[in-house]
Amino acid sequence: MSIIVTGADGYVGWPTALRIAKRTGERVLGVDNGARREWVASVGAKSATPVVSIEERVAAAEEQGLTNLSFVEGDLTDRAFVDQLFAVHEPDTVVHTAAQPSAPYSQINGEHANETQHNNMQATRNLLWGLHEAGLDDTHFVETTTTGVYGAPEFPIPEGGATMENDGDRDEVPFPAMAGSWYHLTKSHDAANLRLANTQFDLPISDVRTAIVYGSGTDETRADDRLATRLDFDYYFGVVAHRFAAQAVAGYPLTVYGKGEQRKPFVSLEDAVEGLARLALCDPDDRPAPHTVYNQVTRAISIVEIAETIADVGAEYDLDVAVEHVENPREEDETHKMEIENDRYDDLIDGQSVDFETGMDEVLRAMTDQAEIITSHEDRFLPDVLEDRED
């Protein structure tokens, strides 16, 4: 048995590779081309948590006893590389976490939109076709797509298909792609391609639609500073909760656009990694249905609750954090109460293990330890309403 984790140098991919390697004696192979580091550097940003080279990471993992974890550098958009990867390693499971993950990055201009769509969709297609043409149709393919494919509908979001009725006839159909960015649309296309690969190749598929992930690490990454995963806090690659935390550490108020009562789906890094590890390690006889969709979310949280929670936790770190409501420059429903079903994912991980307050406590601890990095890069995360203020 062997397991491949793509995007193994990334925020979610690295701790996932560590956890899988920790729980199995089988070989775990991480694959990455280092693009995430390049993308973040290209927008003038930096991880709050110092991240060592992948070679140092793997060496540190080996010192922790994870001698079954190895790494290969390669670009998944290169079909020849993918073909060689599968010919040599013949994986029983592929956990695909490699993607350009930022909606704002994909929206910068047409070049970034093209780069995002080429990278994300080409990589997934190469992997699916590569498995099929290598005769590896029994390989369990687990991909992190995104809850962003759902948009923000005014009805509860199902965990998978939706039931459609017309003239008295009913059938289950894939949820329509309602993505709001060029990045999110790549995952809508991926979801459709995953379904097609299952239909045409009988490839077992787990489509894990990942919510906004918060947190600074897992048990595995905390075992050694060299095992730390990245913690981005800039506008392009830092999620809203991490950007708010950075504002707090830098001494700025947390700016909530409008009412801020709209809810977004969230999952802790710990709970995201746990679900992927369990899917990767499940016995072939106990795998989920051949095509299963999981909503990888533990709860929906409003923007104002995010800010207020960070303000409360910040007091434990002697941070005087104010929450300010400012005029909303966006056209959005400031009171949208997202409802999203997650029973299947909740059962997979046996329920949430890290709540939002605990996760943000860990993030603030990590960021206060690296306050100089945060303050020296404040132009990368401050909203215009704060940048324009006079000191």
Rank of each mutant, 00 (worst) to 15 (best):
Thr218Pro: 10
Val213Phe: 05
Phe237Val: 03
Asp224Pro: 10
Gly238Ser: 08
Ala246Asp: 07
Leu227Cys: 10
Phe244Met: 15
Ile212Pro: 00
Thr229Glu: 03
Asp225Met: 01
Thr221Cys: 04
Ala223Ile: 00
Ala211Glu: 13
Asp225Ala: 14
Ala248Thr: 10
Ala246Gln: 09
Asp219Val: 09
Asp224Val: 09
Phe244Thr: 03
Tyr236Val: 09
Ala228Leu: 11
His242Phe: 11
Thr221Tyr: 08
Tyr214Phe: 15
Gly215Gln: 04
Ala223Thr: 13
Gln247Gly: 06
Thr210Leu: 15
Thr218His: 01
Arg222Asp: 13
Val240Thr: 12
Thr218Ala: 03
Ala223Tyr: 01
Ala246Met: 07
Thr210Cys: 12
Ile212His: 06
Leu231Gly: 06
Asp234Ala: 11
Thr229Gln: 03
Val240Gln: 02
Phe233Ser: 09
Ala246Gly: 09
Ile212Cys: 07
His242Met: 03
Ala241Cys: 07
Gly215Thr: 03
Arg230Leu: 14
Ala241Arg: 00
Gly238Asp: 07
Val213Ser: 10
Ala211Asn: 09
Glu220Tyr: 04
Tyr236Lys: 00
Ser216Ile: 05
Arg226Val: 02
Ile212Glu: 09
Gly217Tyr: 06
Arg226Gln: 04
Thr210Gln: 11
Asp224Cys: 05
Thr221Phe: 10
Phe233Leu: 12
Thr229Gly: 08
Phe237Leu: 05
Leu231Ile: 04
Ala248Val: 11
Ala245Met: 10
Thr229Ile: 01
Val240Ala: 14
Val240Asp: 04
Tyr235Glu: 13
Thr229Phe: 02
